[in-house]
Each structure stands twice: as C-alpha cells, then as structure tokens.
Simulated assay, not measured.
Amino acid sequence: MTGLARPRPFRVSSFADLDPSLTDAHVAIGNFDGMHRGHQAVLEKVLAAAEADGRPALVLTFEPHPRDVFRPDQPVFRLTSPIAKARIADALGLDGMVTIGFDRAFAATPADAFVRKVVVEGAKARSVAVGWNFHFGAGRSGSPTLLAEAGLRHSFGVTVVEPFSDEGGTAVSSSRVREALEAGRIGEAAGLLGYRWFFEAEVVHGDKRGRTIGYPTANVRLPATARFAHGIYAVMIEIDGIARPGVASFGRRPTFDNGAAVFETHVFDYTGDLYGKTVIVTPVTYLRPEMKFDGIGALVAQMDQDSAEARAALSALTPLTPLDRALLFDRIGG
C-alpha cells in the first residue's frame, strides 16, 4: 500500500481503530523516542517489505515512555511526542501508527501473550521489524530471539536490525540526541536524527513585555523534562501549516524575573494573533547562552544583533535529508 493515498486518521490508540485496509501489514515495533537514524533503519525494513508485496507498513509504539512508568521520579526528556512521531512516520511513507497505552498492567503481560494479543491478533502482522535491543513482556523476558521463534510458530516474519552507527562509528541513540540538545549542539542532534529536531506546543499569554520593546513574542510553556539548553536560537516556527523564520529565547529571563523557563519566539515580519494556536518550533542554530543585562537598552541592542544573526543563519538553510525537506522545507513560505 505504501505510495498510495493513506487512510485517516493516521494515528490511533488500538488496532481495532485502524482502517480495515491496514490489516495484514508489516509492522515496526518499538518505543522510537526521537525517530532517529537508528529507528529509521528499522522503519526502512518495514517499508521495503510492504513495498515488495503491496501491503501496508505500520509503526507500533507505546505511550507514555516506560521509564516514566517505572521511574516517575526520574522522568525522561522526551524527544518526540506521539504527534511528532506520527508526523515523522507519515513523512517517511508509513501508512499508519498505533500508539498503545503503557502502564504497569500492560508491562506485566507475559511475553507469549504479548505476541499473541498484540502481534498476531491485534496487528495481524505479516512481518515485524525490531531493533537489536528490543524487549517486551513481563520482566522484559521477551527478546528478539524469542520473537523470531514465535514468528515461526505463528507464521510471521521477523527482522532484527543491528545497531546503526554514525559516520564516526558510534551507535546512534536517543541518549546521544538528548545529550547534544542539552548542550546546545543543535547541528550534532540533527546529524543523529536525520532531520532538524522540533516540538509542538500551544501559544499562551505571557507578560506582553516584548511588544513594548519592539519584539512581540509567541510564548509556549514546555514540560519540565524539556531539558535542552537555555539560550537564544534561530528558529523556524510553523503557523497554520506555514513555516516562518524567527529568533527565540528559551530560559528564565534573568534580566526581568528569573522565573519558570519559557520558550519565546519573535516571528520575523508577522503580525497575526497566535494565542491558542498550536505551533511547531524547529530550533535551527544555537546563537548564544542566556544572559542578564543591566537595562532595557542593552537588552534591545543585543536582541537586534541576535535577530540579524538569526536571519543570516536561516537564509543559508538547506535540507539535510529528504526527510528534513518533507518536515520543514516543504512548509516554508510567507
């Protein structure tokens, strides 16, 4: 089915909610936080299998992140929300995404029952693809080897994808992406992801101070787990399907109140009302760390410089990959 018009909704919470045309599919299974190049290697196996026999290609993932369930005191910095995962999966050419709720009861499902209920009865999978470190079932007792053995019994194929390494020979992982973003190494994160990282959020009311100094901003509040580096960024912000350039600050506003962290974007040459809209923000370049200024004049002078640097950085943008083009560049306008 890949390559044809895909049924909607693209993302559902159970196999029962899938369009009937998406049964008897090839399925990639995993948590896939980040949908990075290693995850894409798994998805490519499913896409190839689906293309070969004209069947759908699906991705099965879980929500919330298992670590948030078992170690709620140590919540993970989530790279991709379910909405972001679906956006990426759609851009890659998959036909649908199933996001199963993950809790302690689901985690206690015996491995053989997981195969029967999820893979055989739920997905009705022709084949599945998983990463080399995929585990499932109570106590993580299910392994890729066990899955392959179950595939022989239940007549579905199993492909296990080995670790995917970057050009330096180091395995790509979600942890490496998080570390790069936390350090402000945006380019490194993009190289690991195969696209420029983005997040979606709703624009909320702020103190409206920016408009008084010539820099009105679209403010979004992010989860406390969003631990990417505080500082100033050149960004693209998608509003109503159109990606526009801007400059953004993420941090505690030390010149004013040093309060809770807020992501504030000044959208260049835009005057529309954004309150209540969900926007998609793509940090492109980390310009500098957050700073405290002696007064408004010094702050505005620095903001003028930041804006000029952001415009220059964004004017030189080129797609990293076809996926990066689909997620960002095909949406640039205005």
Rank of each mutant, 00 (worst) to 15 (best):
M1H: 08
L4I: 13
S13M: 07
S13N: 15
S13F: 13
F15P: 00
A16V: 11
D19H: 14
P20R: 11
T23G: 11
I29Y: 12
F32T: 06
M35Y: 00
H36L: 10
V42K: 00
L43M: 13
P64Y: 11
H65Q: 07
P66D: 12
P66R: 06
R67Y: 02
R71Y: 13
R71V: 10
Q74K: 14
F77E: 07
L79R: 07
I83E: 11
I83C: 01
A84Q: 08
A84W: 00
K85S: 06
I88H: 08
I88P: 01
A89Q: 12
L92W: 03
G101F: 11
F102T: 11
A105C: 09
F106R: 14
A113T: 12
V118I: 15
E121H: 05
G122V: 13
A123Q: 08
A125D: 06
R126V: 09
V128E: 02
G131I: 03
F134L: 13
F136T: 09
S141W: 05
T145Q: 15
L147K: 05
H154V: 04
S155W: 11
T159G: 03
V161K: 03
E162T: 13
P163S: 12
V172E: 06
S173A: 10
V177M: 02
R178C: 05
A180D: 02
A180H: 01
A180W: 03
G184N: 06
Y195E: 04
W197M: 05
A201G: 00
V204M: 02
H205P: 08
H205D: 13
H205F: 02
K208N: 15
R209E: 01
I213W: 02
I213S: 06
A218W: 10
L222K: 04
F228R: 06
G231N: 06
M236A: 14
D257P: 02
G259M: 02
T271W: 02
G272I: 04
K277Q: 10
I280L: 12
V281D: 07
R288Y: 08
F293V: 02
G297V: 13
A298H: 08
A298D: 07
Q302W: 05
Q302F: 02
M303V: 03
D306Y: 11
E309V: 12
A313I: 13
S315I: 10
L320F: 05
T321A: 07
L323Q: 12
L323K: 01
F329R: 08
D330M: 04
R331K: 15
I332V: 15
